[in-house]
Computed example of a mutant assay.
Amino acid sequence: MNLILHIVLMLLSVALFTLFERKILGLIQLRKGPCKVGPLGLLQPFSDALKLFSKFSSAPIKGNLMLYYFTPLYFLILSLVFFLNKPFLSTSFFTLSILVLLFLYTTSVYTTLVTGWSSNSKYSLIGSMRSIAQSLSYEITLGLLFFSFAFIMSSTLMFKIMNFNSSMLQLFYCPLSMILFLNYLIESNRTPFDLSECESELVSGFNVEFGGAEFSLIFLGENLMLVFNSLVLSFFIGSISVYLIFWLVIIFIKVSIRGAYPRYRLDSMMELCWLIYLPLTIVLLSSLFLI
Rank of each mutant, 00 (worst) to 15 (best):
L3M: 08
L5F: 12
H6E: 12
L9Q: 08
L9D: 05
L9W: 06
S13N: 00
V14E: 15
L16H: 03
T18D: 11
F20S: 06
R22W: 01
R22T: 08
R22I: 12
K23I: 09
I24P: 09
L25E: 06
G26S: 10
I28S: 12
Q29C: 12
R31P: 02
R31M: 02
R31E: 10
K32F: 11
K32Y: 13
K32D: 08
P39A: 13
P39I: 13
Q44W: 13
P45F: 13
A49F: 14
K51M: 05
F53C: 14
F53Q: 14
S57A: 14
A59P: 14
P60L: 06
K62L: 08
G63M: 02
Y68W: 05
Y74G: 10
L76V: 04
I77Q: 05
L78S: 00
V81C: 02
F83T: 10
F83P: 00
K86Q: 12
P87K: 04
L89E: 15
S90W: 00
F94R: 10
S97W: 06
F103I: 13
T106K: 01
T111K: 06
T112Y: 02
T115H: 09
S119D: 09
S119W: 07
N120E: 05
S121R: 05
K122C: 00
Y123F: 11
R130N: 01
A133H: 06
Q134F: 01
L142G: 04
G143I: 07
L145E: 01
F146P: 00
F147V: 12
S148W: 10
M153P: 01
S154D: 04
S154K: 02
T156N: 15
M158Q: 06
M158E: 03
F159Q: 11
I161Q: 09
M162N: 03
M162P: 04
N163R: 09
N165L: 14
L171W: 05
L171M: 06
C174A: 10
P175T: 03
I179Q: 04
F181S: 01
L182Y: 04
Y184P: 07
Y184L: 10
I186R: 02
E187R: 12
E187A: 15
S188P: 01
S188N: 09
N189H: 04
R190Y: 00
T191F: 09
C198K: 13
S200G: 07
N207A: 12
E209V: 06
F210R: 15
F210S: 13
F215V: 02
F219R: 08
F219H: 08
G221C: 00
G221V: 05
E222G: 01
L224H: 11
L224N: 12
M225P: 08
V227K: 06
N229I: 07
N229R: 14
S230N: 15
L231G: 04
S234W: 02
G238Y: 00
G238F: 13
S241T: 11
V242Y: 11
V242W: 10
Y243I: 09
L244K: 15
I245P: 15
F246P: 04
W247M: 11
F252L: 13
V255I: 00
I257G: 04
I257Y: 09
M269W: 15
E271G: 14
L272P: 14
C273Q: 15
W274Q: 05
W274A: 00
W274T: 09
L278R: 07
L280K: 13
T281E: 14
S287I: 11
F289I: 05
F289C: 05
I291H: 07
